[in-house]
Design a protein around this nucleic acid. Structure first.
Length: 578
RNA sequence: CGGGGUGUGGCGCAGCUUGGUAGCGCGCUUGCUUUGGGAGCAAGAUGUCGUAGGUUCAAAUCCUAUCACCCCGACCA
């Protein structure tokens, strides 16, 4: 392709609304343009990267035995009502009405539709296992779309769905997908970490996320991993070991003390000269509208996902001040479990291990000190509802400590169990002639997000450095000038030779100065650049410059095509640029 | 939705406090020179100053409303 014949609108400056380096580079390199928040045009270079990435994903899915289909983007609301997710998805689901005033959904995921595809028709266990996948645009009305393609409202995704006869065969299918994911991301030059995650609105009992670990602030999610064993989980899921009961001190008598002006943990620790881990926070929430209380140590952060799972509610929101006052009969900041009646109270195991601790007294500017469980109050529900923290002991090996890193989630896998087959009544006949529900799994790869994650990972101050497997072109051919007839002729000849040799080549045939072309070449990040300049041409040579390497090499014109092909082959074999 | 911020040629920005009819850099067009890491000179084109009201002789500038976009938070197959 000739640069002059395609459309590569590079920018010297970053648009003001781009924050992440990857977002800036994709904008500056003329890869993407925003249409509205979270919705992007994919320009010619991006389109080619997209094709490359899709091909990798497709090849690995096919290799794993998954079968490609295409399902509609437009779904009838009835299907979502049938599964019960019409209400679960809430505002995140893009919805519209047709001319008959029927509710429609722009799909953000396809569990319902894929189940509808097979139900009633896939009737025999002999047709199982089955894995159906598609690569398709998805819509999600994100609360806050951001960071370019990282969190879009419209984005490209590969979604696969497995159907199996039982849990054992489901696990086989699940692990095949896990293997396919590692293979896929490897080919993209991305080292990914598989971490445990919460199942969220997907239901089911097991889930993993595939994370690209990044040093920058671009990681949207914090993941915790053990320094001794291979345990890794995201912040929603990560668990640390529960403490043994602290060598029990003698219970001191309960005492109610005034704490004027001390409503926050910091103020109370300061005022009472008690460390935060001796305080118990009483946090009030509305679980599907009903007030509930959660007790965690003062030095800990509540994990609302864990809390929501414990209460089994759809909606969990912090109670407003007036609810707090109504329930505790005290202003915000003085809630405590003693005397708190008629609401469910859940305590973190760490709280259960405390003695002589401090709680709010449900009275303005008052706390209880020397509180002890059983004697002063009792809780019926105990569940881990705190966030893990760096330095905590790993809950798996019980030896290592947890560290944290930021990551970009590029893929995920979910065991869905029987949730959707049950809700949508999808059954097959087993070997005994009995009707059974399908065991299902769902598996996503954010294709457009993976592309941006790759840019976020592989760039320098000059621009993008693509892994050869994803690069829009394999080679960028740069004639240093077009004014010199010999040089021009040699460039076009090489361009033709490369095309005939099946090399994906972009030639910068613009009548620009060399510096402009070099800078644009570095910006768009094609892994191999070939310079045709008069100095080397006099020696019968052309120059090779790999984007990821500083040095410039020279080869004889005659062997140029061969050397270029070898270089490309080497780059593709090891796609990680550095 | 809460908090913060920004909307002025394609991109980046100034002008707004103190109203007087829009400017800079890059890019774009044409010509000449130049040509190995973002050239120089000259001549040009491109703006209903986000939108709608209002105040005023006069509004990019003041007031009101509204929309869009960005950041933090909440949320997130």
């Amino acid at each position: 392709m000739l640069w002059s014949k395609t459309y590569i609108p590079t920018l010297r400056e970053s648009p003001a609304d781009a924050e992440l380096i990857s977002h800036k580079m994709l904008m500056r390199g003329g890869y993407i343009r925003k249409l509205q928040a979270g919705v992007y045009n994919y320009l010619p270079l991006m389109q080619r990267v997209l094709h490359k990435t899709i091909n990798i994903v497709r090849e690995e899915m096919d290799r794993s035995g998954a079968i490609e289909i295409t399902m509609p983007v437009l779904h009838p609301a009835e299907l979502w009502q049938e599964s019960g997710r019409w209400h679960v998805m809430g505002k995140e689901q893009m919805r519209m009405k047709d001319r008959h005033n029927h509710d429609m959904v722009l799909g953000g995921t396809h569990e319902e539709v894929v189940t509808n595809v097979i139900r009633g028709e896939l009737r025999s266990y002999r047709q199982l296992p089955l894995n159906l996948y598609q690569i398709q645009v998805k819509f999600r009305d994100e609360i806050r779309p951001r960071f370019g393609l990282m969190r879009g409202r419209e984005f490209l995704m590969k979604d696969a769905y497995t159907f199996d006869t039982d849990l054992e065969t489901h696990k086989v299918a699940y692990n095949k997908m896990v293997d396919a994911y590692f293979a896929t991301f490897n080919r993209c030059g991305l080292a990914v970490r598989k971490v445990e995650s919460d199942t969220g609105a997907m239901g089911g009992s097991m889930a993993h996320e595939f994370m690209v670990i990044v040093d920058t602030d671009s990681g949207e999610e914090v993941i915790y991993f053990c320094n001794k064993c291979d345990y890794a989980a995201n912040v929603e899921k990560a668990e640390s070991i529960d403490p043994k009961k602290i060598a029990s001190e003698t219970a001191k008598p309960l005492e109610k003390v005034p704490t004027p002006g001390a409503a926050t943990i910091e103020q109370v620790t300061e005022f009472l000269k008690v460390p935060a881990e001796r305080l118990v926070k009483t946090l009030l929430y509305l679980a599907d509208g009903k007030p509930v209380a959660a007790l965690i140590r003062g030095d800990r952060q509540i994990n609302e996902t864990k809390l929501r799972n414990h209460f089994g509610c759809l909606e969990l929101v912090m109670a407003t001040a007036d609810v707090v006052e109504k329930v505790t009969k005290a202003p915000v900041g003085f809630a405590g479990p003693i005397g708190l009646k008629d609401i469910r109270i859940v305590a973190d195991p760490e709280v259960m291990a405390l003695t002589n601790f401090v709680v709010g007294a449900n009275e303005n500017e008052t706390h209880y000190i020397n509180v002890n469980l059983k004697r002063d109050f009792d809780v019926k529900e105990v569940a881990t509802i705190r966030n893990a923290q760096v330095g905590d002991i790993c809950s798996h090996c019980k030896e290592g400590t947890l560290s944290a890193q930021k990551g970009i989630e590029v893929g995920n896998t979910f065991n869905l169990g029987l949730k959707y087959s049950k809700a949508l009544n999808a059954k097959f006949i087993d070997a005994e002639g009995k009707e059974q529900l399908f065991w299902m799994g769902s598996y996503g790869i954010g294709v457009t997000r993976t592309i941006q994650a790759t840019v976020e990972k592989y760039n320098d101050e000059k621009g993008i450095i693509w892994p050869a497997t994803m690069a829009p072109y394999q080679v960028e051919l740069v004639p240093l000038t077009l004014q010199d007839d010999k040089l021009r002729a040699a460039s076009f000849e090489l361009y033709d030779q490369l095309n005939r040799a099946g090399v994906e080549v972009l030639m910068d045939d613009r009548d620009e100065r060399a510096g402009v072309k070099f800078n644009d070449a570095d910006l768009i990040g094609i892994p191999l650049r070939v310079n045709v300049g008069s100095k080397s041409l006099e020696k019968g040579e052309i120059e090779l410059k790999e984007r990821a390497k500083p040095e410039v090499g020279a080869v004889k014109q005659e062997s140029a095509v061969e050397t270029i092909k070898q270089t490309i082959a080497r780059q593709i074999a090891k796609p990680q640029p550095f």
